[in-house]
Simulated assay, not measured.
Amino acid sequence: MKKNLKVKILTAVIMLLVFIGAAIILNRPDPDDVLSSAQKRIFAFAKVTAILGDNASPDTWTEGRRIGAQELEVRILTGKHKGAVLETINYLNAYYNVDAKLGTRLIVRLDYNDTGELYVVSIPNYDRSSILVIALIAFAILMVLVGGKQGARALLGLLFTLLNLWYILIPLVLKGVSPILATILIAAYTSAGALLLLTGYTKKTFCALVGCVGGVIAAGIFAWIITILTPMNGFNMSEAEELVIRASESPLKISGLLVSGILLSALGALMDTSMSIVSALHEVYEQNPSISKKQIFRSGMNIGRDAMGTMANTLILAFVGSAFNLLILFQVYEYPMIQILNSDMMAIEILQGIAGSVGIIATTPLVSALCATIFRFKGNKILTR
């Protein structure tokens, strides 16, 4: 028992050190870099201290949203200009509608005019940070209350995954590494970290990890083949033009971003499917250690078939939800079906749902076969039950 605990701690320390080292190397600033236009902008939290004028009024076509302009007095709450009181015009339209009231907390963009005086350029958003922080805390508390130690470990695994995506995967892609290769490697690494935190260094973890990575690779191969045959790649995405403009001087490979996005979207579902099948099969084996490999495999396939239907629906409906506005527009303009199905946006959404589902389908027999072999293997002294 003590040996297994030492192995778990050593593994966690090694993975953490690898993350810290990679994050430092990949995010190290280049001395030749110059600040981008976005980095030069000054943003701050502010609070409305007075409404000096307001000609905005509700409009029928905006479903009651007020259209017009407000003259506001705001006090800066953060940054080097904290305490400054400024006046500004807040323009309200249907799409950019930060309708301020007395005491409303806002995000403001600041700049200096030709005489060096500070002024508010625009009010891009409400200050939503406090509400979002409360929502995150509530989510974490519920996870721990309901899930106990497992819930706490799941939260740590989620945090580990998000940190790796932001500090390792994206910098790797920006430095010219193949997005597909980088995504598969990070998917394997983060899955290992999340599963180790969740279930420890066990046979269950090993089977779930290999099954998850295998499903990601299967989904990636399927998506890659389809993107070649259609043809379709990252340049078909709505953000491609902005990426080309902003990243023209970097070695970023845009063509692989489509498949990478598909793999990331499917990763969570594949991890869930793998662990669900493995946990169920492990329980079956624990209750009946004499069960044969064939019976374990058959049970895994039966469990996996149920998971396939629900997870495939989850993936496809998630992508349908993200494209819901687009579907409404197709109905409004009465596009013919031949145009709908062959449009870039719809083809991408369809591919995302199908590729993720293919990954789930591939995961089921792989995990079942692994469990049938690993659970009955008696010679393993490192992996616990």
Score class of each variant (00 low, 15 high):
Tyr285Arg: 13
Thr273Pro: 01
Met1Trp: 06
Thr230Phe: 11
Asn55Thr: 12
Phe377Ala: 07
Ala247His: 05
Thr11Ile: 14
Val367Gln: 03
Tyr189Ala: 12
Gly83Thr: 12
Ala208Arg: 08
Asn380Glu: 09
Val34Lys: 11
Ala84Arg: 15
Ile254Val: 13
Glu63Tyr: 11
Pro336Gln: 01
Phe377Glu: 04
Leu315Asp: 02
Ala362Thr: 06
Gly116Asp: 13
Lys293Trp: 06
Leu351Pro: 00
Lys6Phe: 12
Met237Lys: 00
Ala84Trp: 12
Glu241Thr: 00
Val144His: 06
Gly215Pro: 10
Ser36Lys: 06
Thr373Gly: 00
Pro124Trp: 12
Leu86Arg: 13
Leu52Tyr: 05
Ile180Phe: 05
Gly79Cys: 13
Ala140Gly: 09
Leu52Phe: 05
Lys101Cys: 01
Asn288Val: 10
Tyr167Trp: 14
Leu281Ser: 03
Gly300Phe: 06
Lys47Leu: 03
Leu326Ala: 04
Thr364Glu: 05
Phe297Asn: 05
Leu158Lys: 07
Ile9Val: 15
Gln339Ala: 09
Gly151Ala: 07
Gly148Glu: 01
Cys212Arg: 01
Tyr95Ser: 11
Lys204Glu: 07
Ile51Val: 15
Lys293Gly: 11
Gln352Val: 00
Ser36Met: 03
Ile225Asp: 03
Ala69Asn: 13
Asn236Asp: 08
Tyr333Trp: 07
Gly261Ser: 01
Val34Gly: 00
Glu63Ile: 05
Leu10Val: 15
Ala372Asp: 03
Ser130Asn: 09
Tyr95Leu: 12
Gly103Tyr: 09
Ile20Thr: 15
Ile361Glu: 01
Gly200Asn: 05
Lys253Ala: 06
Val120Trp: 13
Val121Gly: 02
Met15Ile: 14
Leu264Gly: 04
Gly79Asp: 09
Ile340Val: 12
Ile20Met: 15
Ser129Phe: 11
Asn342Leu: 03
Ala12His: 08
Met271Pro: 01
Val121Tyr: 08
Thr202Cys: 06
Tyr95Pro: 00
Phe222Ala: 08
Asn55Lys: 15
Pro289Leu: 10
Val121His: 04
Lys82Ala: 15
Thr190Pro: 07
Asn90Thr: 11
Thr49Met: 09
Ile89Ser: 14
Asn288Ala: 13
Ser255Lys: 10
Leu163Trp: 05
Ala194Thr: 14
Leu136Gln: 04
Lys204Asn: 06
Ile42Pro: 03
Met275Thr: 04
Ser57Thr: 12
Pro365Gln: 07
Ala355His: 04
Leu326Gln: 03
Ser129Gln: 13
Glu286Lys: 15
Gln70Asp: 07
Ser274Cys: 07
Met337Leu: 14
Tyr91Gly: 02
Val120Arg: 10
Ile107Ala: 04
Gly103Thr: 04
Tyr119Phe: 15
Leu252Val: 08
Ala219Val: 07
Met301Arg: 10
Leu35Asn: 05
Leu102His: 10
Pro31Leu: 02
Leu163Arg: 08
Ser248Gln: 03
Ala194Gln: 08
Gly300Ser: 09
Glu242Met: 09
Cys207Ser: 13
Ile245Glu: 00
Leu118Ala: 14
Lys378Met: 06
Val98Ile: 15
Gly353Ser: 04
Gln331Tyr: 13
Ile382Val: 14
Glu349Ser: 08
Ile348Trp: 01
Leu136Tyr: 10
Pro251Met: 08
Ser276Trp: 02
Leu86Thr: 10
Phe375Met: 09
Phe319Ser: 02
Gly21Leu: 13
Gly261Tyr: 01
Ile254Asn: 02
Gly261Met: 02
Lys80Gly: 12
Val367Asp: 00
Phe324Ser: 11
Val320Asn: 05
